[in-house]
């Protein structure tokens, strides 16, 4: 591993999942420029830096680990393809997120089998990321997986646009302004989508809680 790659990986780990702080992004600017010029080592650094966040976002958008993995590969393929068109005055993170959202939309469209929700059981059968990385006890893993499946079902009650808006705003922690830039919509539209999505999720949660109480 080249020294620069190791440095970037270290910085990424210390800052959490692909933190896009201004300092880090400014340090990545020359790397992006070199990748634009066709330097594959620089492109590998970009992948190293962003892949965690790309996979996580894709998983939240698709609710399925296999598709998230495929989508992440497709994202980096598109990044490589369109990197020459990226202007240095643009926000790279926003540009990358836009690609992620577009790829996930394409995946959801082409694979109709994922139009329905990914149930907890089906996720367990296919083997989620956790089963690959499981180190804790099985019971806590099961509870976490069950909770994820429930949240995924809640997200499945939303439209595609609402899901993208809520994932970026509430789960990825972006500002409304940035979400609007990524989705190519106005801030008012994004606020409306977020508002509607939060109301639907609240309704879904209430329904689940009622069912749970009835079963008890």
């Amino acid at each position: 591993m080249p020294v620069e790659v190791a440095d970037i990986a270290l910085m990424t780990d210390s800052l959490g999942l692909g933190d896009s702080s201004p300092n880090l992004l400014s340090s990545l600017a020359p790397v992006i420029e070199r990748a634009k010029a066709g330097d594959m080592a620089a492109f590998e650094q970009i992948i190293e830096h962003h892949q965690r966040r790309v996979i996580t976002t894709a998983w939240r958008m698709l609710g399925n680990s296999e598709d998230a993995r495929d989508a992440a590969q497709e994202v980096f393929l598109r990044v490589y393809k369109y990197l020459r068109g990226f202007r240095s005055d643009q926000d790279f993170a926003a540009w990358l997120y836009r690609i992620v959202i577009n790829v996930c939309r394409d995946h959801a469209r082409t694979r109709s089998r994922h139009a329905g929700f990914a149930s907890f059981e089906s996720e367990q059968e296919r083997g989620s990321f956790d089963s690959l990385a499981s180190t804790g006890n099985a019971e806590s893993e099961m509870i976490r997986a069950q909770q994820r499946a429930m949240i995924d079902q809640a997200l499945n009650t939303l439209s595609k646009k609402e899901r993208a808006a809520i994932v970026l705003r509430d789960l990825e922690g972006m500002s409304t302004e940035k979400v609007a830039a990524v989705l190519g919509s106005s801030q008012t539209t994004v606020r409306s989508q977020i508002s509607s999505a939060r109301a639907k999720i609240k309704k879904y949660r209430e329904r689940v809680l009622k069912q749970t109480r009835r079963m008890e």
Binding site: L17, R52, I55, T56, W59, R60, S65, S128, F129, D130, L132, A133, R144, Q147, R148, I151, A154, I166, D170, L171, I201, R205
Partner: peptide, 11 residues
Amino acid sequence: WLRASTPPELD
């Protein structure tokens, strides 16, 4: 509740 879902661990 929505935020309680931790992102999947990636090895």
